[in-house]
Design a binder for these strands. Structure first.
Length: 425
RNA sequence: GGAGGGAUGGCCGAGCGGUUGAAGGCGGUGGUCUUGAAAACCACUGACGGGGUGACUCGUCCGGGGGUUCGAAUCCCUCUCCCUCCGCCA
């Protein structure tokens, strides 16, 4: 959510930011609504002030045993008017709020302006493409041939876009998660968190999934609760501190969480239908930071480096791109995507997305912090990034480490987590 | 699932329908005293939003929402969460 004051005083800045995001939202309707809200509020607050004073007089009179029926009669009228105005104010405020909840974040000034993913800019590259003296196979065929991935049975028990991991594959998934968590908690200073993967509507609204993107989510039916499956651990972990005021000395707070993620993948029919690149359920290690506003862009660089470190240790070739204004997510002010090389597709695919949401989510979720010595509290910045998407890391390992005989070599760093084996197949 | 009990400021804990934003205590901050510290004593100490350069001022908030009333922390309804007992269960 954007700062109401920013919209009131610098609507042009917001309108400009929206334009860069290819949004055609018109702020005029908002300005009108907000002016109405403020005018009603001014009137009703004056009336309330009068009512409070008169109420005190009634109390005084009653205590003195005097008659106050005249006063009470006057108050009755005032009170009716207040009720009416309060109701109007609530309606208009709800309208203002609903509108605010649909506005995306304003891009940071360092973000390249562009229309879509073709305008993203290359930040860096690491490693080299592996060379094969044979035609590399894709992870789907490798996984099936090595009896690790079973799509047919997954389709039987659940449907399309699900997979069963068996034997070495299940072990590899678990090994990758443990490997990532150990590095982030042991070397990068993160605190591991295991949150609920089912959350309520308020939580989904806090990070920005709702009210606009409900079609991307799985909701739970057959219960009178308003429950949703999380699309990323960013949702429960960022909301961990919703409705709280943190001390400045608490910051930065850094959490990592390994959770399943659920996405309906509405509107992606026909995309990545083969294999486990795009699933309804996948596992991810997520990194989440709460920082002071002045520290958040330094923290974004660190966050990106933490995610990159995993790929370096696994020896996987990747590149980093800065997302342009037109390609960024709803809540982000700036985003780096880390893309890993996939030989079968002869291209780079997203394996991590690291974003600084600035105070956008903090304002929605009412996460505050109090600068040391300050009277007023402020809004911390929140950041999140994958570190990494485990399923896609699984894919990258299979494809990049495959051998001519159809076997797959286990990267050195991962062997302790795989019971010491150095090869699958 | 059944029965009962709760939710008040950073924490504990009072609170007759009428100067109660809320007693008291703890904690915190400042001060007095002291060589220093502790103790003791004194003062200050909630959040959010609006207005004013400022001293300041107005409004809202006692788990959430709704209702009764001139007036609600206090009465009624409802929801959520927590606790105790029974049942079921990993």
């Amino acid at each position: 959510m954007l700062d109401l004051k920013l919209l009131q005083k610098h609507g042009d800045v917001v309108q400009d930011g929206l334009a860069k995001r290819n949004s055609d939202i018109d702020l005029a309707r908002f300005q009108e609504l907000d002016a109405k809200r403020r005018s009603i509020l001014g009137e009703v607050e004056t009336l309330k002030s009068e009512r409070n004073k008169a109420s005190g007089l009634v109390a005084k009179a009653k205590r003195a045993g005097e008659d106050a029926s005249d006063l009470i009669a006057t108050l009755s009228t005032t009170s009716d008017r207040i009720k009416e105005l309060d109701k109007q104010a609530a309606e208009v405020s709800a309208g203002v709020n609903d509108f605010l909840l649909t506005l995306p974040n304003v891009p940071h000034e360092s973000v390249p302006v562009g229309k879509d993913e073709n305008d993203n800019t290359l930040l860096s590259m690491w490693g080299d493409k592996p060379e094969f003296d044979f035609e590399p196979r894709d992870h789907h065929d490798l996984g099936v041939a090595l009896d690790g991935l079973d799509f047919e049975r997954a389709a039987k028990i659940a449907g399309a876009r699900f997979a069963v991991y068996k034997g070495w594959a299940a072990r590899l998934e678990r090994a990758l998660a443990a490997f990532m968590l150990d590095i982030h908690t042991g070397e990068h200073g993160y605190t591991e968190v295991m949150p609920p993967v089912i959350v309520n509507r308020q939580t989904m609204t806090g990070t920005g999934q709702l009210p606009k993107f409900g079609e991307d989510l799985f909701g739970l039916t057959g219960t009178d609760k308003d429950y949703f499956l999380i699309p990323t651990a960013e949702v429960p972990v960022t909301n961990l501190h919703s409705e709280e005021t943190l001390a400045e000395t608490d910051l930065p707070i850094s959490y990592c969480a390994y959770t399943p993620c659920f996405r309906s993948e509405a509107g992606s029919y026909g995309k990545d239908t083969k294999g486990i690149i795009r699933q309804h359920q996948f596992q991810k290690v997520e990194l989440v930071h709460f920082t002071r506003p002045e520290d958040s862009y330094d923290q974004l660089e660190k966050l990106r480096e933490h995610a990159e470190e995993i790929l370096k240790r696994l020896g996987l070739h990747y590149r980093v791109v800065t997302l342009c204004t037109g390609d960024m997510g709803f809540a982000a002010a700036k985003t780096y995507d880390i893309e890993v090389w996939l030989p079968s597709q002869d291209t780079y695919r997203e394996i991590s997305s690291c974003s600084n949401c600035e105070d956008f989510q903090a304002r929605r979720a009412n996460i505050r912090y109090r600068p040391t010595g300050a009277k007023k509290s402020g809004l911390p910045h929140t950041l999140n990034g994958s570190g990494l998407a485990v399923g896609r890391t699984f894919v990258a390992i299979l494809e990049n480490y495959q051998q001519a005989d159809g076997s797959v070599v286990i990267p050195e760093a991962l062997r302790p987590y795989m019971g010491g084996i150095d090869k699958i197949g």
